[in-house]
């Protein structure tokens, strides 16, 4: 993918509309390679590559969690912090229905419909992060503060 031929995904459109300084970084996507693959391909610390996880609470209300690539989400702790009984990851079809994105290409930007978005509090410690730009094999590099403000994300402490 040459730099001047990036697809215009809803996430990229949202980024352009927001005016947030960013840069796009394509990499050779591998099915189930996750953030480890992206970090390795782009030669960056996986801690800075942020996963966009789509989940549901016990009322099947969807939500998005942003987590460091090298950490996991404690759904038990997340449920406790959000005051619900349970939270579990959505299956790929449900996640697609909620976000408009396919697994591996899900971004918190340009979601099909507004969802509650939460970010692991320590993501804000980083001066920059890589987040999916709405397509498999394409990340956007930006400041976490800008992202959190743009998508109105709330902090949580749920990393394992």
């Amino acid at each position: 993918m040459s730099k001047d031929k990036f697809p215009i995904t809803p996430a990229i459109r949202a980024l352009k509309g927001s005016g947030i300084p960013n840069s796009l970084h394509p990499y050779d996507y591998e099915d189930k390679g996750g953030t480890g693959r992206a970090a390795s391909e782009l030669q960056v610390d996986e801690h800075h590559v942020i996963k966009t996880l789509v989940m549901e609470d016990d009322n099947r209300a969807p939500l998005v969690v942003l987590m460091h690539g090298d950490r996991k989400v404690s759904t038990k702790e997340l449920a406790r912090q959000l005051g619900v009984k349970t939270i579990r990851p959505c299956d790929p079809e449900t996640a697609h229905r909620h976000t408009g994105y396919f697994v591996g290409g899900t971004s918190p930007l340009g979601l099909k419909k507004p969802l509650r978005i939460y970010f692991e509090a320590s993501i804000a410690d980083l001066s920059f992060i890589y987040i999916n730009a709405g397509k498999r094999g394409l990340l956007a590099r930006l400041a976490p503060r800008d992202l959190v403000h743009e998508v109105k994300a709330e902090p949580v402490n749920v990393a394992l």
């Binding site: 804000a124 959190v148 403000h149 902090p155 402490n157």
Partner: peptide, 20 residues
């Protein structure tokens, strides 16, 4: 407690919902 959340943030854009 594990409920406590401490983070780097800017008072001019507080990342919480209205009435939180």
């Amino acid at each position: 407690t594990s409920l406590d959340i401490t983070f780097q943030g800017d008072v001019h854009f507080i990342p919480f919902a209205d009435g939180a």
